[in-house]
Amino acid sequence: MLELFTPHRETWLYRVNPALKFVVFFAFMLIVLFNQNFHFALNQLILYGVLVYSFSGYSWRKLLLFSVPIVISFVSSAATMMLFGKGVTIWWSWGLIKISEESFNYGLLLGFKTLSFGFISLVFLLTSRPILLFYALMQQFRLPSKYAYSFIASIRLMPVIVEELQTRSDALKIRGVHFPKGLKGIFQRLRMYTVPLFAQSIRRAQRVAVAMEAKRFQMGAKRTYYYPTTYERVDAVFVIVMVVSFASALVLSVR
């Protein structure tokens, strides 16, 4: 599992300040979300595709593997829209299903957006370490340390929670628990799985918080950081490359 997420080589994207990278990609994501122009959506998709496949530092085979779920969600979102979307110029219809020119284009637009989101997220996740993201958010973007450290503590405890969920699942299996069908079954399943998990996690979080405060962690106090993060030259390069390629995606689409 760990080997799967080890890059082939570390590209320049790895050295960009994670918080800056996050903010830039997040802004791009908002633009993708609100954009309704077909060509602009396609150009952006190409840009993010190039970013993932050339600069993430992973081999082609791994990247294709990571792209599988993204492509599946592309197909499902585009297909639903093509079959059930609204439109006037009808190409083909059968019962409730109706493919029109408009719904086909909307389907593709929706699909491009889904792919773009998938690629932006993938390139960010593959080239950044979550813990450093929070350190950089605190140092470069003034995120209050109480939030950042709560997130960091929760991320560190994630494996424990996953293990507990697995244990709970095994325990229910070995006790031969059968759930009724329908909504009642869904509720029972939800209760059986989550109540012990929540009870344990709340106790654990409470203990961690008390321990941190006992070691003089104070909300809102001035502090130093174990991992110092700064802006470097590569950050300027990153911003310039991103702005230029994004602008060209925009210009090429309005022509």
Binding site: S150, A153, L157, I161, T194, A209, M212
Partner: peptide, 22 residues
């Protein structure tokens, strides 16, 4: 919100995230 409330809230979010994913 005390610090412990904050940490518990975020932990609940994380537990939910994992369960939902599962």
């Amino acid at each position: 919100l005390k610090f412990s409330d904050l940490l518990i809230t975020i932990m609940i979010g994380v537990v939910f995230g994992i369960t939902m994913k599962f």
